[in-house]
């Protein structure tokens, strides 16, 4: 990646590369948690184990749709920004944050529902379910913080085609959390 682009281009890729490495680290964290889920699961004759309360699938589907949409919106805004669309990016950023908050709200509803159904932490499936979703939600909170960090600059239209290292870094993190959620959704609710 040692391209001979403009100085600004160099800076952008340096920051971005750091974020790529960090996301690889986070990826290994979630991969290790999911591996634990798989290794515990393959040892059980039935999964979820007998007597496990049902999971609210509808909420989870809605959740997934919301988070996917947030990624699509952010990605659209980022592309616009690359071509000078500062207005569009600002709108997209606000929508992404709103959708992230909706995701967290739905996630809270999901936990209330599983708790009401009697899925506890001492239950092996329940324990894994809560560790995975809590770890992810904690990172979503961090991701929302990062998105909010972009707001002042975006409001003043500071970010543009030549100045969007932060935007690229935060977007990468957000898309990563989206991918992690989709894998979790498939692992917990689908297969």
């Amino acid at each position: 990646m040692t391209s001979n682009g403009s100085p600004a281009g160099e800076d952008r890729w340096t920051s971005y590369l750091g974020m790529v490495v960090a996301v690889a680290s986070w990826g290994m964290l979630f991969a290790a948690l999911l591996l634990s889920y798989v290794l515990l699961r393959v040892q059980q004759p039935v999964w979820p184990p007998l007597g496990s309360p049902p999971l609210p699938l509808g909420l989870a589907v809605a959740n997934t749709a919301v988070l996917l949409l947030s990624s699509v919106v952010l990605s659209w805004g980022g592309r616009k920004l690359g071509r000078g669309g500062r207005e569009e990016f600002h709108v997209a950023l606000q929508w992404t944050i709103a959708l992230g908050i909706v995701f967290l709200g739905l996630q809270l509803r999901l936990w209330q529902a599983t708790h009401a159904n009697g899925l506890g932490l001492t239950h092996i499936f329940g324990g894994m379910f809560y560790v995975l979703t809590w770890a992810h939600a904690a990172h979503i909170v961090a991701g929302l913080g990062a998105l909010l960090w972009l707001v002042p600059g975006s409001r003043q239209r500071t970010y543009g085609p030549e100045r969007r290292a932060r935007v690229m870094m935060v977007s990468l993190f957000w898309h990563f959390l989206d991918v992690v959620w989709v894998v979790m959704f498939v692992a917990i609710f689908v297969v």
């Binding site: 680290s25 990826g27 290994m28 964290l29 290790a32 948690l33 634990s36 001492t122 092996i124 560790v131």
Partner: peptide, 25 residues
């Protein structure tokens, strides 16, 4: 370090849950 320390971090999260929140991993 970047690729494998996160794995023990995950193990520590699970161990922490076992010790503090009563999970049975």
């Amino acid at each position: 370090n970047a690729l494998f320390v996160p794995v023990i971090a995950a193990a520590m999260v699970l161990l922490f849950f076992d010790r503090v929140f009563g999970t049975q991993f």
